[in-house]
Design a protein around this nucleic acid. Structure first.
Lengths: 141, 141
DNA sequence: CCGCATCCGGTGGGATACTG
DNA sequence: CAGTATCCCACCGGATGCGG
């Protein structure tokens, strides 16, 4: 066993690994990214404005997402004690810095998504089960 | 660019929304990012090399992660029919383009992770113990 | 060495209903 | 309008064991 081959170049990763995991856990769930995207393009928004414009989010998930983003210092939450109540959300400065890398991802997605779709189709064709046999059914009810 | 007042500026998002969700679902799980990171820094790697160097991944998750990445055209899988068998994984060209936005995220994480940790501490301090604690309120705007 | 199958507990997240 | 609470279940993901 050659001593040079024992360790791979993961030293740079190890120092940032925890941080990266942490950040990924936050922006990993798609709703967070959608919220940040909406707020970065529209400035401050009310709860239902976010809910209406983020396709498919439940009010429960939106609430949780906003709480997490607020807790991480990425989003501000401002309550106006009126009737009916009004709550506005906006990006903090930290949140605004995050939009740059997120937009990079967004651009990449827009540019390469069709390649991914095509790759999947090609993969599924090759790895599809026997012609007369449909895919396995996990939970037949 | 003349946005009407009735609709928020989500037009650009809507077209990319599906693509973004799709991509996020892939790179959202932390193992994918780790794998791409390892492969981008080390070139092609064998299964157990990946397993050993990605902290905490189970072989099941690594297998699934690699399958998904392969299916999406981000990772190549090369089988050498030897005994014992040898399988090497590497990034496709598409996968290599993805490293740029991922690295941007990685850099952001490294730079701002401590701010997030601090924000969480601050949030937890004045949100958990006192039930009669008012959030930040904009009085009489 | 590589990787699939099976079992199984924990949880993410939708649907729904209720408060201030 | 902006949440909170409850139910419930699909799926994630770890542990273990077998097979080429």
């Amino acid at each position: 066993m050659s001593p040079t081959a024992t360790v791979l170049k993961d030293t740079t990763q190890h120092s940032n690994c925890l941080a990266m995991s942490d950040v990924l856990n936050r922006i990993g769930d798609k709703w967070s990214v959608m919220v940040v995207g909406m707020l970065s393009r529209n400035g401050t928004l009310r709860f239902n404005e976010l809910k209406r414009n983020i396709n498919g989010v439940s009010q429960r998930m939106l609430t949780l997402t906003l709480r997490n983003l607020e807790r991480d210092g990425l989003v501000t939450r401002t309550v106006y004690p009126e009737i009916p109540p009004r709550v506005e959300y906006g990006l903090t400065e930290l949140g605004q810095t995050l939009t740059k890398p997120i937009n990079a991802l967004w651009d990449w997605s827009a540019e390469h998504h069709d390649e991914i779709v095509e790759a999947r189709k090609a993969y599924d064709v090759d790895h599809s089960p026997a012609p007369s046999e449909p895919a396995r059914i996990a939970y037949a009810r």
